[in-house]
Amino acid sequence: MGHHQPHEESGLAADVKKATGVVAEKCYQCGKCSAGCPVADEMDLPPSLVMRMLQTNQPENDEKILRSKTIWLCLTCEMCIARCPMSIDIPKVMDFLREKSRTEKKISSNANDIVAFHDSFLLSVEKTGKLYELGLIAAYKLKTFHLMQDVAIAPAMIQKGKLHFIPEMVKDRGNLSSIFSKTIKKK
């Protein structure tokens, strides 16, 4: 059977099932996830539509999902699974779809700022073992060119003692960098 023929053992829905145990076919389109999702109105594909598209098992739908802004807009607030009558773990599916979208270089250009933030965050953790907030903001600004953002609140943050100028460091940084090279940097 050709790669592009619908087949129950191939395609994105099968990948989702293998990686997360979530069976997209269980969704009967009640729409409670999309109704309760705090960012559904900002999404290109509401969560219930993602589930429906997975069910179709069409390569073009799989591609649209992996290239959507939706997967990066999901806040993992877990409201969808709390309300799902079939207990479908959509947040877990979103985590899987994001990782797949990233490793296959299919990240939506509409999600550049969100992904730049995650990259900047993880860079700080890789280098210091902790989140160094000033470093995170600096890295994010350089990645996105949003240079003036939050300049207005920085003095107040400093005055209130909320920004460190020297990062706190984990002592065993070799251990941290080894964790990164065995996981996210491997792919």
Binding site: R98, E99, K182, T183
Partner: peptide, 21 residues
């Protein structure tokens, strides 16, 4: 010698990293 838990960024980007931290 505690480290960052990885927060939202890690589980958005890489499952094994998000569990390892």
């Amino acid at each position: 010698d505690w480290n960052c838990c990885g927060a939202t960024a890690a589980h958005n980007m890489d499952k094994e990293l998000s569990l390892s931290l």
